[in-house]
Simulated assay, not measured.
Amino acid sequence: MAEDQADGPLRADQTLGEIGLWQFAPYLMNRIMGRYNANLQAALRAQSLTTAKMRTLAVLAVVPGLTINELSVYAVTEQSTMSRTLEAMEKAGLIRRQARDTDARVREIYLTEMGRAEFDAVWPTMHARYEEMFAGIDDAERAAFVGTLQKVLRNVRLHDL
């Protein structure tokens, strides 16, 4: 596969063909996350987890008490998929829903002890795949990359939380 490269700085009037896939950040980000998720699939299947369940566990382990809409954004999952995922996770005893103190119509979602244990069991695999992504990249490069991704996320979050 040819790793095409654009000549000089990118211009607003360039076509994708002129830029090239290997210089087009959205393509690279999708490829990276596609491979990361594919590499996790075997471990997830062994624990009867889907990507949506894994993302839900991970997000709730760090940010408990989200609504379904918020959780869908954080877990990068369609709301309809998130609804089905949460139903299955609740039946399995991995999450619980609780009425918000300030508005009983709003349901907040939390991990149960079993859900926390499930996340703790999958985290070593998630972390190992994460470290594999950054093999050969020093701490300064990693920090700069993550900082750049955070700026990009702020730029595209027009309709998010």
Rank of each mutant, 00 (worst) to 15 (best):
P64E: 00
E131N: 10
D13A: 02
F24I: 06
L158N: 07
A2N: 06
K151V: 15
N69L: 13
E141Q: 15
A6I: 07
T102Q: 14
D4C: 11
L86F: 04
A12I: 06
A99F: 01
P124F: 00
A58L: 07
A42R: 13
R142H: 05
L57M: 02
Y36S: 02
R142I: 14
L44Q: 03
A117K: 10
A58M: 07
G115P: 02
A42Y: 02
Q98G: 08
D7A: 06
N155A: 15
R11S: 13
D101C: 04
A42L: 08
I95S: 08
W123P: 04
L60M: 12
M33E: 07
K91A: 07
D138H: 03
Y110D: 02
T15V: 01
L10N: 04
A143G: 04
R157Q: 01
M82A: 03
E131G: 04
Q14Y: 13
G93T: 04
P9M: 13
G136C: 04
R142Y: 09
A104G: 05
M114K: 13
R154T: 04
T112R: 10
D160G: 12
K91E: 11
A46I: 05
V63C: 08
L86S: 03
A2G: 05
R55V: 01
T67P: 00
T67D: 01
R96I: 13
G136P: 12
D138W: 03
S83K: 15
V59H: 00
G65P: 10
V63F: 11
P9S: 12
A12W: 03
A25H: 10
A42S: 14
S80V: 13
L161V: 11
R84L: 09
A104L: 10
I19L: 07
Y36G: 00
A58S: 10
T81W: 03
D4Q: 14
I68K: 02
R96P: 09
V59E: 08
E108W: 05
G93P: 00
E132F: 04
E78D: 15
Y36Q: 00
V63N: 13
T67K: 04
M89E: 05
D101P: 06
A144Q: 09
E131C: 06
P124R: 08
F119W: 02
G93F: 02
Y130E: 15
A75C: 11
T125A: 15
M33S: 15
D4S: 15
V59W: 00
D103V: 07
E3L: 15
F24G: 08
A117H: 04
R97F: 03
Q5A: 08
L49S: 02
V156E: 00
M29N: 11
F145C: 01
